[in-house]
Amino acid sequence: MAMGLSGGGGRRRGRGRAGAPMSEINVTPLVDVMLVLLIIFMVTAPLLKAAVPVELPDSRAKAMSEEAEQVTITIQTDGTVFLEKDALAPGELADRLSGIPDTPDGKKPLVTLRADKALDYGKVMEVMGELNRAGFNSISLVTGVSGGSGA
């Protein structure tokens, strides 16, 4: 026995009858939910990158765009230096910086420097000197967002 798929004969199903089940899936709510999830992940992804907790100083400077090839260096209040998530021993920073490969265009990657606001200025300058000696001349200083209007 063969089934007729042309829909020409017999009882009609679909929109022709009142109360008949709709045979189409409405994808609009699915797309809306997916776009909201995409926005949430886009906003939270940069916040998840920095795993070393530090108290950043506030600034009213405009946020910079994030580059794919960048190195994050963090200095905690006690002076501990982290390269990405790895704690470094004193004097180890220069060796680890020399092992970082250049970008495809032959330049050194961008360095984002995160330093605790209670840290001594001399320690920050010491790390920046090591970065400069290793050839990293593009350094971004990361700050927190200032909430006040300021004077």
Rank of each mutant, 00 (worst) to 15 (best):
P90T: 02
G106H: 04
G19D: 05
S23E: 15
M3V: 15
M128C: 03
E92V: 05
G16I: 08
I73M: 00
V145T: 10
S23N: 11
R96H: 07
G147I: 10
G147Y: 07
S65Q: 13
E55Y: 13
V124T: 11
L113Q: 00
A87K: 09
K85I: 03
A134H: 06
E55K: 13
P90S: 07
E66P: 10
R15P: 10
T72R: 07
R11E: 12
G79V: 02
E130D: 13
M1T: 14
A94Q: 04
A94P: 01
L113W: 00
K85L: 01
F136C: 03
T44A: 12
G106S: 04
S146K: 15
G106A: 03
L93N: 00
L93V: 04
K108F: 01
E84R: 04
D32Q: 10
G150F: 07
G9S: 14
A63N: 11
L30P: 07
I100D: 01
I139P: 00
L97F: 02
A94Y: 02
A61L: 12
A51D: 12
T103A: 04
L110F: 01
T143I: 05
R17T: 08
S23D: 13
P46S: 06
L48C: 08
A18Y: 14
R15F: 13
F136G: 00
M22W: 12
P29G: 03
G99Q: 09
R96N: 08
M1L: 15
L97I: 04
M42V: 08
L38A: 12
V142I: 06
K123N: 09
P21R: 11
L88P: 00
P53G: 08
D86N: 06
G4T: 15
G91K: 03
I39L: 15
M34I: 07
I39C: 08
S138T: 13
E126N: 15
R17S: 09
S6N: 13
L48H: 05
N137V: 07
L37K: 06
I25V: 11
L113T: 00
R60V: 12
T112A: 06
R60H: 14
D116Q: 03
T112R: 06
A134F: 09
S146P: 06
S149H: 15
K85N: 08
V43H: 03
V71E: 00
M22D: 15
M42C: 11
V52M: 04
R133M: 12
K85P: 03
E69I: 07
M34Y: 10
T28D: 10
P53H: 05
L88C: 02
G4D: 13
I75P: 00
A118N: 14
I25C: 09
M3E: 15
Q70P: 08
N137E: 12
M125E: 13
G135F: 08
N26H: 06
T77Q: 11
G19E: 01
D116F: 02
A18R: 15
S23C: 12
T80D: 04
L93K: 01
S98K: 09
A118M: 14
